Amino acid sequence: MTLRPWWGALLVSLLLGCTPDKPIRIGFIGGLSDRASDTGEAGRNGMALAVEQRNQAGGIHGRRIEIVVQDDAQDPAKALAAIHALVAAQVDAVVGPFTSSVAAVVVPVLNQARLTTISPTVTSGDFVGQDDYFIRVNRTTRDNAIDYARLLYQRGQRRVAAAYDARNASYSDSWRKEFRAAFTAQGGQLVAEVAFASQADTGFGDIVEKMLAAQPDGLLFIASAIDVGRLAQQAEKRAPHMPASASEWAASESLIELGGQAVEDLLIAQSYNRDDTSARYLGFHKAYLARFAREPGFSTIAAYDATTVLLQAMERQERGESVQQAILKYGPFQGLQQSIQFDRYGDTPRKVYFTEVHGGQFVLLK
């Protein structure tokens, strides 16, 4: 039988109407091959679990979600190439980045492309109060530094020496300056501020020597888990009874694995409650262990929350609304342990929990 032109066009239209809607594509950008890759890998896993669970529940209005992964390698040039690749792939939104230094590189590109991006862990004050396409589910360096300054002073520390990773300057500079201001206001003094660039051959013993030369009564490390572990090991050799603390950036499972006995009694804040016994968190924890055969970390929880916010906003998104508008409009969103509500700039508060390392475990302060 020969089809008339109009019948052929109708048949094509019907066939097209039967094809499934194209998937929603969400980009991921994080460090998967650098010295702080533990944060990026844990974040990627948290995002993957959130997406898998949503797909098992039917996706978003019947559309499946796909993840497009890009490694920023904690390197400005690679981060720029990675974000351009996500823009070229025409993803619908992005989860990441996980460090403030990478955010400083990629956010201008994202804003130019009008691509909504939600970061699980970026805290630098450089990104607070900005009317742009960059959303954060974490609190700020100011919030964290003020809490640390208050707690260290309460514990009797008056002269604190800090070492900080200048490679993530947007974060470490902001954190250090906020801590200095808050600690000074308490009556304390930041007696040393030792910069270093995180590399395999970094002389961590020399860094600790410079910190101790200022005769502090406490050490503060503003760095990733791998570097805090090595700094703590050098501090244990030179000043074994000196109180030490580390910024929340290092609060991953790798800290204990790499630091060993040297990180015992280390004070560090967590962005989630590891002892949570709620059904929601226990269900997540069980699913994560079954899927990845390891404990979730702070970036896992943050990425799971960030992805959950994004998917909930997309589900509620109305015709003509951008993803960014939906995130700002349709909150609060239910995270694993707390409700997440954004202000007009895409900023949100987040509760933290101070812990100490005891017996190779993060133990909540009572």
Rank of each mutant, 00 (worst) to 15 (best):
V208Q: 11
N273D: 15
R167P: 03
V263S: 10
A81Q: 13
S198F: 00
D71V: 09
Q338F: 04
L11M: 14
L255D: 05
L3W: 10
R180W: 02
L267W: 00
G360Q: 07
Y304L: 09
A235S: 05
F221S: 09
E236H: 03
L16I: 12
V12C: 12
L152T: 14
T307Y: 04
P296C: 06
L220Q: 10
N144C: 10
A89E: 12
Y171R: 10
E264T: 01
F204G: 07
A306T: 03
A48E: 15
V263I: 07
V208R: 04
S299C: 00
T307D: 02
V94T: 02
Q70K: 15
I83G: 02
A42K: 14
L365W: 05
F292G: 03
R155M: 12
G46W: 02
A192K: 11
R316E: 01
T99F: 13
I60C: 03
L310K: 04
I327G: 13
I67G: 10
S172T: 15
P332A: 01
P243S: 05
G46R: 03
Y133R: 03
A169C: 12
Y304N: 09
R319L: 01
T19N: 09
Q199C: 03
L289D: 14
A82K: 05
F204Q: 14
V12A: 14
R136M: 00
I226G: 03
G283Q: 04
G156K: 12
F221N: 08
G331S: 13
L86H: 01
E356R: 15
Q90V: 04
S271I: 13
K286T: 15
E321G: 04
F354A: 13
D206I: 11
P216I: 01
Q112N: 13
G205R: 04
L231M: 08
Q90D: 02
V68F: 00
P332G: 12
A232P: 00
E295Q: 15
A9D: 07
A232F: 09
L151D: 13
F298I: 14
R319D: 11
G62Y: 11
V105C: 06
V228M: 02
G229L: 08
F362Q: 10
G229D: 09
G58L: 02
A113Y: 07
G125D: 12
A77M: 15
A103V: 09
L115M: 08
Q337K: 10
Q112A: 15
Q215Y: 03
P216G: 12
V105F: 07
G297F: 04
M242G: 02
F179D: 00
D147R: 11
Y133M: 07
I222Y: 01
S119D: 05
H358K: 15
F28I: 11
G260R: 05
Y171T: 00
G218M: 06
D72V: 08
D147Q: 14
R114T: 11
D305E: 11
N273R: 06
P296A: 08
R280V: 13
I26L: 15
Q234R: 09
R64S: 13
D38L: 10
G320V: 03
K351I: 08
T116K: 07
